[in-house]
Design a protein around this nucleic acid. Structure first.
Length: 269
DNA sequence: CACCTTTCCTGGTGGC
DNA sequence: TGCCACCAGGAAAGGT
């Protein structure tokens, strides 16, 4: 499941191949992803690539007239391949480069997307996003300020893209454990000081995960096919019924929304 | 075979 | 009662 660290790992993996390359065209085999691939993308020919950036979990391939937006959804991945290599099942599109290589997108569940935003226009999906968790705009005061009228569980709160982007199920659970905060606690019942600790935990967990190359559970792999190694550093995710690594108490399982949560009933209040 | 995953959207609710 | 902010639930696809 690609979350922010996995998307950032992917970006760093494919950037050397896209940097200063020419995009011959985008070869789309399956137009029906989460949203249909727009016509503008199909019409692209011989475009110089100006850069590869990331906003939230979107990769942005910068071109002269606009940017390609790639979202990996739940099961998407990008790999660098020889363009002549026979595509596998669920290889939905290729960014064909002028050196014979291709950036190939595979996504069995098709919750991902390939979208287009003209230069100077912010895509609607990027319009109401909160700050990047690794930027200066994100801190404890920001969380505290935006939580004053929110009665939702703090776990749901930090997974809300309007509050802060890029915190998915795995990293929300890990951050709350590090900060010692119970995932069910109402967002408006947490002090500014504890939000300071939570913001630092989110930043630390994400940075460590990026260094480790992301978390490989079932299907994530880096652009070169290597798995990420952060799974070995998880404290609570998927460990319900096992012992807390800090105090030994049996970890509890719960649900927030439709997502599973694991936490330590002693360390997290 | 029911379940599990992420995110956006919709329709309903609660508070002022 | 009207409005807005908030929130819970549903949908998509395929592997396990």
């Amino acid at each position: 499941m690609p979350e922010l660290p996995e998307v950032e790992t992917t970006r760093r993996g494919i950037k050397p191949f896209l940097q200063a390359a020419t995009l011959q065209q985008v070869l789309v085999r399956q137009r029906q992803l989460r949203w249909p691939v727009p016509q503008e993308v199909l019409a692209l020919r011989q475009q110089p690539v100006l850069g590869l950036t990331r906003r939230a979990k979107f990769l942005q391939v910068r071109l002269p007239q606009g940017e390609l937006l790639i979202h990996l959804g739940m099961s998407g991945s990008l790999r660098v391949v020889d363009a002549a290599l026979t595509p596998n099942k669920h290889d939905h599109f290729d960014l064909l480069l002028d050196d014979g290589k291709a950036i190939r997108y595979n996504d069995p569940r098709r919750f991902g997307a390939l979208l287009w935003a003209p230069t100077g226009e912010l895509h609607p999906l990027l319009q109401h996003l909160g700050p990047e968790p690794l930027s200066d705009a994100f801190n404890g005061h920001h969380l505290w300020q935006h939580s004053r009228r929110r009665s939702v569980a703090v776990k749901n709160f930090i997974m809300d893209n309007k509050v802060v982007v890029g915190v998915g199920n795995i990293y929300a659970q890990e951050s709350l454990f590090l900060a010692g905060i119970h995932p069910s606690r109402a967002a408006n019942r947490i002090s500014q000081g504890r939000y300071q600790a939570l913001a630092e935990s989110i930043r630390e967990v994400l940075e460590r995960a990026i260094v480790a190359g992301g978390t490989t559970l079932r299907d994530f792999s880096q652009a070169d096919g290597q798995p990420g190694y952060f799974a070995q550093a998880l404290n609570v995710y998927g460990r319900a019924g096992e012992n807390c690594l800090k105090c030994g108490t049996v970890l509890k399982g719960a649900r927030h929304g439709q997502r599973s949560t694991c936490y330590c009933p002693v360390c997290q209040r």
